[in-house]
């Protein structure tokens, strides 16, 4: 704020409020639709004010899902999503930390090669190599399993880089002191390096949890058995019913449930989220 310009202030607040409203509009309409019985979403236009079937609809989807679309209970899909997101987040963090530790604190032949090997993965998102990756996972018999859902997404150059950069800023004296006191590498890792990286790990966890929960293409390919459907993929299967108007009230309730965990994570851990996001992209 440099000088007094009341009109510009009013304009700023106005623009921001408009932005917030446009951002929230889809959610409001979705929420409203999820509280109505099926027949009020059949024709005409979607209502703008919540109806009375909130608990009924959510209980239906959580408990039995959409039978007509041959789908499984949403509770189960959320459980699958949760397992997948946690496996991806924890797995990525663990293997990146130990790989970064190995690269920063040791000298060994092929160190550079390993580093570059990891670096290339930065450039190969799963979308560009879907068919062959699918082939590998199929031949390892990992289709329709939690391992197949998460392991191929676990290797990540970004997390390894983040930890490498962070380890490089840790003062040399700490490693020196640890060595003089007779601590081996693993003791140094667990007792000094990990406690120092606590906030970095937490921030990264927030980002990776969202990344894992929101995976779409990969679960779509690896899960043919519906008991392994994740919720984001499940919604698409509900929409794709043939010859019928989709059951909007239940789909919208499922959509709300699919958004809830990651959105809560972002809002409740905003500080960590922003830190993780901005540092990851440096």
């Amino acid at each position: 704020m440099i000088e007094r310009r009341p009109w510009l202030n009013v304009l700023s607040h106005f623009v921001l409020c408009a932005g917030v409203l446009v951002t929230a509009l889809p959610i409001w309409i979705t929420f409203v639709a999820s509280t109505h019985p099926a027949d009020s979403l059949m024709s005409g236009r979607a209502p703008l004010w919540p109806g009375a079937h909130l608990f009924e609809n959510y209980a239906t989807v959580l408990d039995s899902g959409l039978r007509a679309a041959g789908s499984v209970p949403v509770g189960m899909m959320m459980w699958n999503s949760l397992i997948m997101a946690l496996m991806i987040a924890v797995g990525k963090i663990v293997i990146s930390i130990i790989a970064a530790f190995g690269i920063v604190y040791f000298r060994f032949p092929l160190r550079r090669t390993c580093f570059w090997l990891i670096f290339v993965t930065l450039m190969l998102p799963v979308e560009v190599r879907i068919l062959p990756t699918f082939g590998v996972v199929a031949s390892l018999e990992m289709l329709n399993s939690y391992w197949g859902l998460s392991v191929p997404l676990i290797a990540s150059a970004t997390a390894t880089f983040l930890f490498r950069q962070f380890f490089l800023t840790v003062p040399e004296e700490l490693a020196e002191a640890a060595r003089i006191d007779g601590a081996g590498p693993l003791k140094f890792l667990f007792d000094i390096l990990l406690p120092l990286s606590r906030t970095n790990i937490a921030a990264l966890f927030v980002i990776l949890f969202i990344f894992g929960w929101n995976q779409y293409l990969w679960p779509l390919l690896v899960t043919t058995d519906e008991s392994f459907y994740t919720i984001v993929v499940g919604i698409q299967r509900m929409l794709a019913v043939d010859d019928a108007e989709p059951a909007w009230h239940l789909i919208m309730a499922t959509t709300m449930l699919a958004m809830l965990p990651p959105v809560l994570v972002v809002i409740c851990m905003q500080r960590l989220f922003i830190k993780g996001l901005i540092e990851q992209e440096k």
Partner: peptide, 23 residues
């Protein structure tokens, strides 16, 4: 304002698609 503007980041692209599809 930041809190109310950043949360769509957490929405999966497919879910974002469904939201707009419905509207």
């Amino acid at each position: 304002y930041r809190t109310f503007l950043i949360w769509p980041y957490a929405v999966a692209p497919a879910v974002a698609g469904v939201l707009w599809f419905f509207m």
